[in-house]
Lab assay of single mutants.
Amino acid sequence: MDVFMKGLSKAKEGVVAAAEKTKQGVAEAAGKTKEGVLYVGSKTKEGVVHGVATVAEKTKEQVTNVGGAVVTGVTAVAQKTVEGAGSIAAATGFVKKDQLGKNEEGAPQEGILEDMPVDPDNEAYEMPSEEGYQDYEPEA
């Protein structure tokens, strides 16, 4: 019985440690998101679009440190934060509304985080759909 109880105690310690790591990862992701939003706020009209992409990228980098179902929630929060940063930029006159959601080359930025393969159960990952990809044929 002692062996059984000791095993359960060790398992509990492992769960607590994993929860603490997840909590730490979420806190880091939130900190990076805040950094990115402050970065966007300090940019001029020309830099705002690039700044919004930076927020998304920093958040995406930190999301990889967070495991399990938390990833889905962090990704949703990050996307809403990026959308909010863009709205703030438009409201303050840093950028025109028609410039939001495009990178410096004018290509749409939507789907940055949505296409990231995420499995809350950590069982399997699927690649994003290939609808947006084109076949590449090298020139002879």
Rank of each mutant, 00 (worst) to 15 (best):
D2I: 10
V3K: 04
K6L: 05
K6A: 09
G7A: 09
L8H: 00
S9C: 04
S9R: 14
S9V: 02
K10W: 06
A11K: 00
K12L: 11
K12W: 09
E13F: 09
E13M: 00
V15H: 00
V16C: 07
V16M: 12
V16S: 06
A17T: 01
A19V: 08
A19D: 00
E20M: 06
K21H: 08
K23D: 00
K23Y: 09
K23V: 10
G25M: 15
G25A: 14
E28Y: 09
E28A: 10
A29Q: 03
A30H: 00
A30M: 13
T33V: 15
T33Y: 04
K34N: 03
E35V: 07
G36V: 11
G36W: 14
G36Y: 15
Y39M: 02
Y39C: 06
G41M: 12
K43M: 02
K43Q: 08
K43A: 09
T44S: 10
T44I: 04
K45D: 00
G47H: 14
G47V: 03
G47E: 03
V48I: 14
V48M: 09
V49K: 12
H50N: 14
H50A: 03
H50E: 04
G51L: 11
V52R: 02
V52M: 01
A53T: 01
V55Q: 00
V55H: 02
E57P: 03
E57C: 09
K58C: 01
T59C: 14
T59I: 15
Q62Y: 03
Q62H: 06
Q62M: 13
T64H: 05
N65Y: 04
N65P: 03
N65V: 11
N65L: 12
V66S: 01
G68Y: 12
T72I: 15
G73Q: 12
G73T: 15
G73C: 13
T75G: 10
T75V: 14
V77S: 02
V77P: 03
A78D: 00
A78C: 07
T81W: 14
V82D: 03
V82H: 08
E83R: 10
G84F: 07
A85Y: 14
A85E: 04
A85W: 03
G86K: 10
S87W: 02
S87V: 04
I88A: 05
A90Y: 08
A90V: 15
T92Q: 10
G93K: 06
V95G: 02
V95H: 12
K96I: 14
K96Q: 11
N103A: 09
N103L: 07
N103Y: 06
E104L: 09
E105R: 07
E105T: 12
E105G: 08
G106C: 10
A107R: 11
P108A: 12
Q109M: 06
E110Q: 10
I112N: 11
L113M: 05
E114N: 07
D115K: 14
V118A: 03
V118K: 13
V118R: 03
D119K: 15
D119I: 03
P120V: 05
P120C: 06
D121R: 12
D121V: 14
N122E: 02
N122G: 10
A124S: 10
Y125A: 08
Y125Q: 07
E126W: 14
M127F: 12
P128M: 03
S129F: 14
S129Q: 05
S129G: 10
S129P: 09
S129R: 07
E131W: 11
E131P: 12
E131I: 13
D135T: 12
D135H: 13
E137N: 11
P138A: 09
P138R: 08
E139D: 07
E139F: 10
E139G: 11
A140W: 12
A140I: 06
A140R: 12
